[in-house]
Design a protein around this nucleic acid. Structure first.
Lengths: 110, 110
DNA sequence: CCTTCGTGCAACTATTCGGTTGCAGATACT
DNA sequence: AGTATCTGCAACCGAATAGTTGCACGAAGG
């Protein structure tokens, strides 16, 4: 179970999550457009977009003098897989414990 | 869609993810036990466990002179919800775009 | 009682990170 | 052509973070 660490790191920052949400809703945006809705400068947003790009969550398309960023949500699925695998292991461990308690319910109860 | 930022932050660190995986598989562990399987000191693991605790992913139970940590996986579900909501929005935006392209396929294409 | 084991707390360090300012290069508009 | 936008790159700064070492304290066992 070896997951790209960058996905969770990318999603750890609130600004970056806002960018992801906005891209999911609008489909498209430039760094300047995103910065207009955020309390940070355009360059900060550019850095965040670079981080998201390294995580494979976003890719850039330059048309003319503006660069539009788009969501590539595949890594989100990887993250979900990891989370569900962990949750699953935990649940089955709990179930095993319940079963064990049932089997030994007639034994000593310290 | 306001998610506790701490969940993704907690999961951003590889050591912390290893701890979560281990706790999911074993159900129980002390900081010293976890540190034995990691290239860091016990104190580092304790700090990581504190971070996971702040994110609500772990809670501590002291019995005698040892403190055992256990997984509390509820926040993982919150993270999955957020991820699926974003993915969902993206998918429905894609579908809307497809529909739009279908409707306007006979119109002018500037 | 004394030793040992496990833990918790504090101080300190190096690196990473989010953010800024400043500037140069390319593209559109009149 | 000349000007106005939009972008990208680099340097710099403060705060957070992952890690360490050192020490003191409570619980078990001889």
């Amino acid at each position: 179970m070896v997951l790209s660490s960058e996905v969770f790191s990318a999603l750890a920052d609130p600004t970056r999550r806002f960018v992801v949400e906005t891209l999911a809703a609008r489909g498209d945006a430039t760094a300047t457009e995103l910065a207009a809705e955020l309390p940070v400068t355009r360059q900060a947003v550019t850095k965040h977009l670079a981080a998201l790009g390294e995580a494979g969550l976003v890719d850039a398309h330059r048309s003319g003098r503006e660069t539009r960023y788009r969501l590539t949500p595949a890594p989100l699925g990887d993250a979900v897989s990891w989370l569900e695998e962990v949750s699953g292991k935990w649940d089955e461990r709990l179930a095993a414990l319940q079963r064990h308690l049932g089997e030994t319910s007639s034994e000593s109860t310290p």
